[in-house]
Each structure stands twice: as structure tokens, then as C-alpha cells.
Design a protein around this nucleic acid. Structure first.
Length: 554
RNA sequence: GCGCCUGUAGCUCAGUGGAUAGAGCAUCGGCCUCCGAAGCCGAGGGUCGGAGGUUCAAAUCCUCUCAGGCGCGCCA
């Protein structure tokens, strides 16, 4: 509707210019907002205040020239000048009722749009190293990335979800060694775990699996002989666990991109060559450097170390070059906030290759503080004990878990209270929204028992029975869902959906409490059933964008 | 020291340059013979960290400053 309102104002401006009331040599952008207060209309615009200095007239004077023209639009009920020069537009009730028609006819598709025009967007997220289980922080990134992908899809983008696997390098060696040592220990040898080794219980699990598969054939092997096999096995085993964790969390990726494959395909070398050709590479102190400072980074970065090995960044330039060259219109990287220092160098790479770095959008995920009844749960990777995503998922359920992760802007700290997430009390926002959905289905079921099916067809006259203020408020809120999805996609902020849903439930519950849906008045009952159905539809659509279920019964 | 993020009600947080800054929780007081009480109703609560600036209009933009977090490896 917002765009419709813009058109109405544009038309009014056009006619005012034509009649010479306004010169209109320069026209500011038409901005429409939804006022917080009902008395300020359904939409309002500040166009008159922006236009006033250009026209050398008082804002209210400019506004007055427009209101009459706006009011003549068939959708507009009335139009007023207010305050310093706002133009407040009130739409006809029939317009709002027609929103219900759209929701009912579109059903699960309500909220989808063509904003993205099929442009290809890649969302890369989680991408945790396969050296340990996913922890709670990864979980937040997973929830945000997946929900963002859903929102972008709904907004008409073609989305690819990708996981980048860091399956080479020192960490894999450390993983291999850690498992190898546990393996020997399980076979009766006395071992000592080095400081750097991974010490979690899962290392022993993998060692056990290794024995089941290969027996004791590596018992007497040297580290040099054994580690490649152990690394490969352990990395794959770990990745399987990660995959399973994610799947149980409701997340499936379209692509799993292996760092190793970059090397195997020679893409790392090729990218370095390309940068060399472009003159961004130099040698110093025995190492090979990429002059990222030329593109806004703090300092230049090493690609090949003095010992001849590659840095992590060298893989990453190849990966991002590949991503850019795959032709996505936007690349979204979801990173932990502690990696923010990394952004500048990745942007530098994109620019150095001659591309526009605006293709890249990095979303930072702040840490999650886990609480239990308000008391912090100690977390620390030190002794290999940290709270895993699986533990939390199993304790509070995936719905509550995903919803909680999406209750804050992603770059804001998040307090995650396990007891709150589990509680079936009214203060738990997950259930507040889900309950709204379930409750409506129960009402519809109740009506059916009484032999009252909601009418199959939309009937404007019938819906005119919805004349309570609460009903209009609900309908208006329903009508803003499409816009919330679009703006969520533009801003790449899934939490907007969460807030929208809490607000929707916050409108519905009081309405329900005050008013009876199923009554002797058949017409009114039908109208209210339609309204309820629309609320349930939008609640379900919104929850599905979050990756949270919309239960019919709870 | 440099860079990024965050400072909004007791707590946790929303808030596309607009009109009297909002929720939830917590606190206090109420509501189930009636479609689901995982719900509802009512009350109190604010120097939007601070100071300048831009603007008709600033929580929002700019500069400075204070506080907290994070990052500044030939680690990954």
C-alpha cells in the first residue's frame, strides 16, 4: 500500500503543478510513513515541509494545495493538514477490508513480493570449523542466516545458502592429532594431551568410531604417518555431526563449499596470480604480501608465509573471488562479531580485483550470554567444555531456541535465559505468538463443531460487520506484514519479523478476551472467523520466516 | 594507541530525520459457571551516556567526549 500512497501523492503533485499552484522545479523524494497515532491518519507524508523552502512558501500553504487533490482519490476517505505541515491521509474502510481478501486468497503466499526481482543472493553462514560441535554462538548465526534467507526468498530474491568448510590447515592437523592421541589412549597407551589439543568429550567419541572402523592398525604409527588419516576421518565425522545438528535445528544448506577444493582446483594460486598481475602483491621479509592498505585496510596482509605455507586469508581471497565471480548480485557473510576486523581486508580483495565491494554485506552476530533464571551460565572453551547448540536445543526445544535467537538485532548482545525459554508462562514470548495461532485454530474448530464453517468466499458486505476499533487495528497491522517483510529483506534484519509477530499476538489476545467470536449472530460470527483466519495465516507465515513452527494445538 | 559495535524505564530491548519516545519482564492491584488463563485488564516508572553542531524538525545525521564489549598475528 505504501507504494500506492506514493502514487496518490505523486498524482496530486502532478495536478498541482499542471495548474500552476506549485512550480515543482525540484521535487523531493516522496516519503510515506505510518504515523504512530490514529488521529494522524493511516499514512502521512512530510512532502509539504520538504517542498516549502523550494517553493518559498509556508509548509502548511503547500500542504493545503495538495490535500484536496489527494482527497479526491477513490481510496482516500479524507486528507488533512496537521501540525507543522504534515499531510495525513485516511483511507477508506473498504480498502482495509480488501486486505483481508488478499490474505484469504493468498494464504501461505501472503507476504511474498517481487521486490528482489529474482536477483541472486548468496547467504553464507555458520561456516564453523569442523573441529568441534556447534556452540550457542553458531546457533544464533544459524538462526539469523536461515531466517534471513527465508525473508529474502519471500521478498523475491533467489537465495543460495552456503556453508564454507575450513577443512585444511593447522586446525585440521590439531584435530587429527587430538583424535590420534585419544585413539592411542583407548588402545591402552598412556598419553599426554598438549595444550593446543582439542579436549572435548567428542574427540574421544570420534576416536572410538575410528577404532570401530580401522581397528588398531595405527597404534604404532608415527604422528606424521597417522595424522593425515586421522584428520580426514575426524573432519568428516565432525562435519557429519554439524550437519546433523543443523538439520535438527531445521536448517539445510544448498551448498557446502570446501576450502580444500579451492586448493585442489588451484584457485588460491590463481587468485594470487591475478592480484600479482594487477600489481597488488609484493615480497618482504621472505613472505608474500597483499597490499590491502591501498583499499582501505589498516595494514597489508600476508598470503604466503616465510615458511612457504599459506595463510588462512589466502584461501579466503580465493573463496571470495569465486563467490563474486559466480555472479551473485549480493553476497551476505554472516560472521561472529569478533571477526569484524576481517571485513576491511575482504572488501580490499573485492576492490583489488576490480569489482564493486558493495556486493558484499557482512552481518555480525554478537555473543550470546546464556542465563539460567537470570544467573549467567559459565561458558569458556578452555577445558573443552562449552555449551553446545545441541544441548540448548534439546533443553528448550528448537522453536524456542530459534525464536530467542531472533528476538534481538543480530549485532546486539543477547541474553538467553534457558528457564524463560522453557517456561510455559505468559512471559515467554515464543508461546505468546504460537499460542495466538493455536488459539485461533481452536476457535475455528469450536465454530465447526457448532456447524459454522467460515465462509468460503470473501464478501465485503459481510466484513463490514467488523466495525470495532480493535478489529480495524488488527486488519491494519495485518496489512503491514508485506511491507515488514520487504523492509526486513532490505535491511537484512530478521528480528523485525519477530517484533511484528509479538505485536500481532499482542493485538489479537486482548481482542479475543474482550469479544466473542462465535455467537448467535451468524453474520458477525462469519466475519470474525474470517478475521481470525487471516490472523492465523499471517502468524503462520511470519513464524515460518523465522523457522519456527505454528502449532494448531499446544 | 588505532578501528568496529553498543549506551533508550529497575532489567532485557524496539524505535525507516518527524507530531506527547514504546514493548516485554520485574513490582503492585484485579479477571476463569462463558470460543484455550501458554491469556486478559489496571497502576507507577525516562536528563534517549554527556557536550556541541546541521535541520523547520535529532534517540536517529556530523564532531568531540565518557563508559562497556570486541578486534588490531607470517593464528585459524
Amino acid at each position: 500500500m505504501r507504494s500506492g500512497a506514493v502514487e496518490i501523492i505523486r498524482a496530486a503533485l502532478g495536478s498541482a503543478i499542471k495548474e500552476g499552484v506549485i512550480k515543482g522545479e525540484r521535487l523531493p523524494e516522496i516519503i510515506i510513513e505510518r504515523p504512530k497515532k490514529d488521529e494522524f491518519g493511516d499514512f502521512s507524508t512530510n512532502i509539504a515541509m520538504l517542498l516549502a523552502p523550494l517553493e518559498k512558501k509556508a509548509p502548511r500553504e503547500v500542504a493545503s494545495a495538495l490535500v484536496g487533490r489527494i482527497a479526491s482519490d477513490p481510496l482516500v476517505e479524507k486528507c488533512e493538514v496537521a501540525g507543522p505541515g504534515f499531510i495525513n491521509i485516511f483511507l477508506k474502510k473498504s480498502y482495509w477490508l480488501s486486505i483481508l481478501e488478499r490474505i484469504i486468497s493468498k494464504g501461505g503466499d501472503f507476504g511474498k513480493s517481487t521486490l528482489g526481482q529474482g536477483k541472486r543472493v548468496q547467504v553464507e553462514f555458520v561456516s564453523a570449523n569442523p573441529t568441534g560441535p556447534l556452540h550457542i554462538g553458531h546457533g544464533r548465526g544459524a538462526a539469523v542466516g536461515d531466517s534471513l534467507a527465508n525473508i529474502l526468498k519471500a521478498a523475491g530474491f533467489e537465495v543460495t545458502k552456503e556453508y564454507y568448510i575450513n577443512d585444511v590447515g593447522r586446525q585440521m592437523e590439531v584435530l587429527g592429532r587430538s583424535v590420534f592421541l585419544r585413539y592411542k589412549e583407548l588402545l591402552g597407551e598412556k598419553i599426554e594431551m598438549p595444550e593446543e589439543a582439542y579436549k572435548g568429550e567428542y574427540i574421544k567419541d570420534i576416536a572410538r568410531d575410528f577404532i570401530l572402523k580401522f581397528g588398531d592398525k595405527y597404534k604404532v604409527s608415527s604422528e606424521a604417518e597417522a595424522i593425515p588419516a586421522f584428520s580426514a576421518f575426524s573432519g568428516a565425522a565432525m562435519l557429519d555431526r554439524i550437519r546433523k545438528d543443523l538439520k535438527d535445528f531445521g536448517i539445510e544448506f544448498d551448498a557446502w563449499y570446501s576450502e580444500k577444493s579451492l586448493h585442489e582446483k588451484g584457485l588460491v594460486t590463481a587468485t594470487i596470480e591475478e592480484l600479482k598481475k594487477r600489481g597488488h602483491i609484493y615480497e618482504a621479509e621472505g613472505a608474500l604480501w597483499f597490499r590491502t592498505t591501498e583499499f582501505g585496510d589498516d595494514k597489508d596482509r600476508v598470503l604466503i608465509k616465510a615458511d612457504g605455507s599459506m595463510t588462512y586469508f589466502s584461501s579466503d581471497i580465493a573463496y571470495h573471488r569465486d563467490k563474486v565471480e559466480r555472479g551473485f548480485s549480493t553476497l551476505v557473510d554472516v560472521w561472529g562479531a569478533d571477526h569484524h576486523g576481517y571485513e576491511a581486508r575482504v572488501r580490499a580483495l573485492i576492490k583489488a580485483l576490480g569489482y564493486d565491494d558493495s556486493v558484499l554485506k557482512v552481518i555480525f552476530i554478537q555473543l550470546v550470554a546464556l542465563l539460567r533464571k537470570g544467573v549467567p551460565v559459565p561458558m569458556g572453551k578452555r577445558e573443552g567444555e562449552f555449551v553446545t547448540l545441541r544441548q540448548v536445543m534439546e533443553e528448550v526445544g528448537t522453536d524456542a531456541c530459534r525464536f530467542f535467537f531472533l528476538m534481538r538485532r543480530s549485532d546486539a548482545h543477547l541474553d538467553f535465559d534457558l528457564e524463560l525459554a522453557k517456561s510455559q508462562a505468559p512471559e515467554n514470548p515464543v508461546y505468546y505468538v504460537q499460542y495466538c495461532h493455536a488459539r485461533i485454530h481452536s476457535i475455528i474448530g469450536f465454530a465447526k463443531e457448532k456447524g459454522m464453517e467460515p465462509p468460503a468466499r470473501f464478501d465485503l458486505k459481510l466484513l463490514e460487520r467488523l466495525d470495532l476499533k480493535e478489529e480495524t487495528d488488527i486488519i491494519k497491522h495485518l496489512g503491514s506484514f508485506e511491507e515488514v517483510v520487504e523492509r526486513g529483506a532490505e535491511a537484512m534484519e530478521p528480528h523485525r519479523i519477530t517484533f511484528y509477530l509479538m505485536e500481532l499476538a499482542g493485538l489479537f489476545h486482548p481482542y479475543y478476551n474482550k469479544n466473542r467470536v462465535v455467537t448467535e449472530d451468524r453474520e458477525l460470527t462469519d466475519a470474525r472467523l474470517l478475521l481470525c483466519g487471516a490472523v492465523a495465516t499471517v502468524a503462520a507465515n511470519g513464524l515460518s520466516l523465522l523457522g519456527v513452527s505454528a502449532p494448531v494445538k499446544m
